[in-house]
Amino acid sequence: MNLNLDTKIILISGATGGIGEGICQAFLEEKAMIVPLFRGHSERLNPLFTWMENHGISKDMCQPENFDLKDKSKSKKLVQSVLEKHGKIDILVNCAGKSMEKPFLLHEDEDFNEMLDLNFTSLAVLTREVLRPMMKQRSGSIINISSLLSHRFGRGVTAYAAAKAGVDRLTESLASEMGKKGIRINSICPGVIETKMSNALTFNLGDQLMERTPLGRYGKPEDIAQACLFLASEKTASFITGQRFVVDGGISLL
């Protein structure tokens, strides 16, 4: 099925993480041009460039920007720079995030700040800056990568879960504000996905969690990436906004 994403410009934060990289690959396979955000050394994007080479995708389709999401005051400049280079931003995927496993009573003040800053505030600021040109275009799709922990489970990850709950509520509230400007906003709540970020969790729990998951396996980055394509495309999701999509193999049914 042609998702009509081949002329689109996709801005992706957290592009060097496991899920982020999967999302980059999925959009590239749809012939979209991606602008992945990375922090620090550009070598972090080497696995993606190698994958592109192996799949015969031109390097030109990936136009990375070195940007630290914590530098919120520079978000406006980043968006301006992307607009100058590429003329528009059709889709924003907010995939950057960081979890913290720690009992609530051991959280330091700065832990709360860090969790909120990385998972919520920086996402909100980047979204605000991207929305301005999207409003002019009268179109756009924003996909926030949230977490199953935003509304289920969450023992030992309280601050992270609360920040992700904020992302879901932001998604819902913003969608009702932006609908009349032709902009759709949705969130995806992944369950356990096989990435470096979830390695510790899956290692600690062994096969217990997998056995309890109705679909009998952990998720893969491409499971999230495909949900992302679905929500990004006007062909498949033009009437969907303000929704929370759980992609968890059914574990939240327990």
Binding site: M135, K136, E177, K181
Partner: peptide, 12 residues
């Protein structure tokens, strides 16, 4: 929301 849109147009 319209106001933000108008201001952005004038800013640009």
């Amino acid at each position: 929301i319209d106001m933000v849109d108008i201001l952005y147009t004038l800013e640009s």
